[in-house]
Design a protein around this nucleic acid. Structure first.
Lengths: 152, 152
DNA sequence: TTTCAATTGCAAACCGTTTGCAATTGGGTG
DNA sequence: CACCCAATTGCAAACGGTTTGCAATTGAAA
């Protein structure tokens, strides 16, 4: 299955590399898209569409455009969608060749997010898949707790 | 942390035990609530509010009432909320004394759900918590894949 | 049976997300 | 460099799940 042992290279990707990936798919490099990619580049953390919207330079673009851009980027594998269970999707830029699979530790009080290197042991996942006859099994895993600052 | 080794006793709970738990909290045993508990008793699987609504005998109750009932039951720990990432919350009855913590394997095509006995190793969870100074750490974990019948 | 807080139904409000459509625009082409 | 058209955007309306205000209803304690 998935290999979770690799480092999640969070070194900022070059803008040219990002736009190149778009161009390869005959997608236009528009103002809104460039601005969105720039925001994602600057925030190595999962961002909601609304947060991206708020971070956009004045006169940014429509919220709907961000939703559409994130759908596109996700489909192209340039962005990974995360779900912290609060009803809002979050996105993180993914390195080329990487699948972006990793997990987070989220503070249930202040929403601080820490990226986690650990992953669910694939031997166990494989066993679960086999035991139930499932194929192409992945998992969604997030941790929740109280961060140092929020422990009363 | 959590003990994941116990069996998830899915033997149906007595209706009287359920209503008793409600009564203890000075909550009324109303028609809608009894009907909802009955549905949950009969379905040892995560159900959405809409599914509960649809399973209700004719002339059931308002959808809003179900939402309110599930909120109450969750607060009382009688029901556990699950999130399969499709935007709809799902609920399962929880045995008395149990915390209901467990996971599922969900078919991404037909939505079949299998309950999983395995859990994320608590030693690893503890290590993650300690390493980041977090307290009271839990996790949300679900598996997704193609069930035997959906593998083309 | 009386009584009152708890609960319900209904409709409107909310929130994140999607979509139809006309206007705009990137970027390959001549 | 001007042209052209498919790709993209803004805007507003629609959507699906969930919540809420309020007046009417109802358990169950006394």
């Amino acid at each position: 299955m998935k290999n979770c042992a690799h480092k999640h290279s969070h070194q900022r990707q070059e803008m040219s590399a990002l736009t190149g990936r778009l161009r390869q798919q005959s997608c236009k490099i528009t103002g809104p898209r460039a601005a969105i990619l720039e925001i994602l580049r600057q925030h190595p953390h999962p961002l909601t569409n609304k947060e991206i919207f708020a971070s956009l330079p004045k006169g940014g673009c429509d919220l709907a455009t961000i939703y559409r851009a994130m759908q596109l980027l996700e489909k192209l594998g340039m962005v990974k969608r995360f779900d912290f269970g609060d009803g809002a999707a979050r996105f993180e830029l993914v390195g080329e060749g990487d699948d972006g699979h990793h997990h987070h530790l989220v503070c249930t009080r202040c929403a601080e997010v820490v990226e986690i290197g650990e992953c669910f042991p694939s031997e166990i996942e494989n066993r679960i898949a086999r035991a139930n006859g499932f194929k192409a099994v992945t998992h969604r895993l997030e941790f929740f707790g109280l961060c140092p600052g929020c422990q009363t």
